[in-house]
Write a protein that binds this DNA or RNA. Structure first.
Lengths: 337, 337
DNA sequence: AAATTTATCGAAAGCGCTTTCGGTGAAATG
DNA sequence: CATTTCACCGAAAGCGCTTTCGATAAATTT
């Protein structure tokens, strides 16, 4: 406890000198610097972050906002992995994360208002909803920002190479001999979902495979339940697919459940490949083949991009695409002869 | 943007009156209050949180700290669920969460130092490590605090009824006809792990079942991998158990993997029951029977406990135990005849 | 009409810190 | 020896807000 005033009194210097000593200014002698630092250590002095922020207009905080349809917040396994990596990268630089709510002191405010109130130095938004007004508002603001998993030309964005991801999945299935390949897609209002659809279509086209009616089915917003339902209607098709590319691991897990419940076997009767490579993918039975998104790299890169903008005090609008990787496990196999 | 000075200039009142109007003081007339509020809305005025904090000595922030052996941070599925519920409860009251790091501006500091620096109003620690010096330091401090999942008589704590949980698991297995019931335990340095062991022992004792050599095995720190290993040594036992109670769902998933790899079937050959009921438990195959911890309630209760201390400005040291619930799914079944 | 309340407002100090700018004495320069 | 330079330090203003304590004019009471 204690303030620089206490420190000044104890050491006999002015608060100016104390402050300078603590901040390692060059115009205070090594001798007095040492004295002051020692006294600070002795009394367990710590600068008050709020006073510092007020004075310097730097808060060393970064606001984080999730925008996703299911409102699971920090329990979203994919977003969560990104944030964890983002956190590690930013904490190294001295930043703390503030998770925005929309309610402050019984006053309902927008995320932007919240962030302005807290005077964050930058914002990261992990967003699946392109249309979210709040996100647009954040992007339009002057606060440094980076958005993950969404496309935009108005700010720095970083997301996976979903187009290649879709292609990767289809090709893998094709090489295993599959010709009846369906796609349980994410909603088209979601950039990632749309890009994976595109990847799927392009790959099918390139291979020369037609997409039968009903083979491209909307799985909604990536939940297990929606994946399950989509798979069920897929199973009811007159000509059932032998393989299905699912746009997200959670949906894929739901799809697997539907397949099991129908008494079919994976991958003998039907192959399934997911997308994301969330934690649990390697623990379901059979272990899920999937397209891995590099959450580690996405989070870290987003952090770098944001901090760069903060320190340089100028916006940069890049769109960085992170490569994905095919992880072959046990849910995909050769087509039945 | 803008400050109360701007508002004062625009409306013609003093900053005092502006501040009072904004804070709904009684000694400013409705008429001027309306004018000021209107002007504030017009200019998009928002109070600067740092200035407010500096002046009121309330920061409306709560520091959160994880302490767990595996360092997975916010990717820990159980802790994570608790924090999410905690967040919802606190955000309603106007608090923001700050996730503590130990590095601030290239200065390595303790969590307590970090929290003091940020002047948080309260602290929540989700802790599995009883011995953590940092946690002790936090508890000894004067900042309002609540700790989850650990026992302590020096502060408010809230955790699950692990004793009953252990008993619940064993009894369920017993009722299915099992007599050879093993326990893959969490490390004994962890309160939760210890209590579940105790529950297991007591239940076995009450039933009159002996605990064969090697049936109580340390699974370490609740990771999938450790659970798998523990199960493997269990399977190598001369007299293999017909059922195993695992102290955590992640370990249980590892155990299931080991069982599958050994060519055995769940629950036909061996029943397994987990603990936690994390998200993925209902998606593994077979779906995991488990003892559910009420993360929703734990998080919310912790929030209430903490906020109460903050507003009343006095420490309370209660230990609240939240009931658990047996969730029967498909990984447990009657013993083979 | 005088005395007292009441309603409404503002000056000023304070929260803990940073930073500009000027001042002082000692060392270096001519 | 006079002058310039340099190293070191502090006064003061400012960051944006809250809160105490008076002050004033209007309303009420006697």
């Amino acid at each position: 406890m204690g303030t620089i005033y206490d420190l000044a009194k104890i050491t006999g210097f002015s608060i100016t000198t104390v402050s300078k000593a603590l901040n390692n200014y060059s115009d205070v002698s090594e001798k007095t610097k040492a004295k002051i630092v020692q006294a600070a250590a002795d009394m367990g002095y710590l600068p008050n972050a709020h006073a510092q922020s007020l004075s310097t207009k730097r808060s060393w905080t970064i606001g984080v906002m999730f925008s996703e349809a299911n409102e699971v917040g920090m329990m979203h396994p994919f977003f969560n992995a990104i944030i964890e990596s983002f956190r590690k990268a930013t904490e190294q630089q001295g930043y703390d994360l503030i998770f925005a709510s929309r309610n402050l002191r019984n006053r309902d405010m927008s995320y932007l208002e919240h962030f302005r109130h807290r005077a964050v130095d930058g914002i990261v938004v992990i967003c699946s909803d392109q249309m979210d007004k709040q996100v647009q508002e954040l992007i339009q603001s002057t606060i440094p920002i980076v958005v993950v998993d969404m496309d935009s030309s108005d700010c720095s964005v970083v997301f996976s190479d979903n187009l290649s991801g879709g292609t990767l999945a289809v090709n893998h299935l094709y090489e295993l001999g599959h010709r009846l390949i369906a796609h349980i897609a994410g909603d088209m209002t979601i950039d990632a979902g749309l890009a994976r659809i595109e990847g799927y279509k392009q790959a099918m086209d390139r291979i020369g495979l037609p997409i039968p009616d009903g083979y491209l089915i909307n799985g909604g917003f990536f939940s297990v339940e929606e994946g399950k339902q989509a798979m069920q209607t897929l199973l009811d098709l007159p000509k059932r697919p032998t393989a299905v590319f699912v746009a997200g691991d959670q949906m894929a897990i739901g799809a697997m459940e539907a397949i099991h419940e129908a008494g079919l076997h994976i991958p003998q009767d039907i192959s399934v490949i997911g997308y994301d490579d969330i934690e649990m993918s390697k623990y379901v039975t059979p272990k899920l083949t999937t397209v891995r998104q590099d959450t580690e790299r996405i989070g870290q890169h987003a952090a770098e991009l944001l901090i760069e903008q903060i320190v340089n005090k100028q916006r940069v609008m890049t769109t960085d695409i992170i490569p994905v990787e095919l992880i072959v496990r046990q849910s995909t196999g050769p087509v039945k002869a």
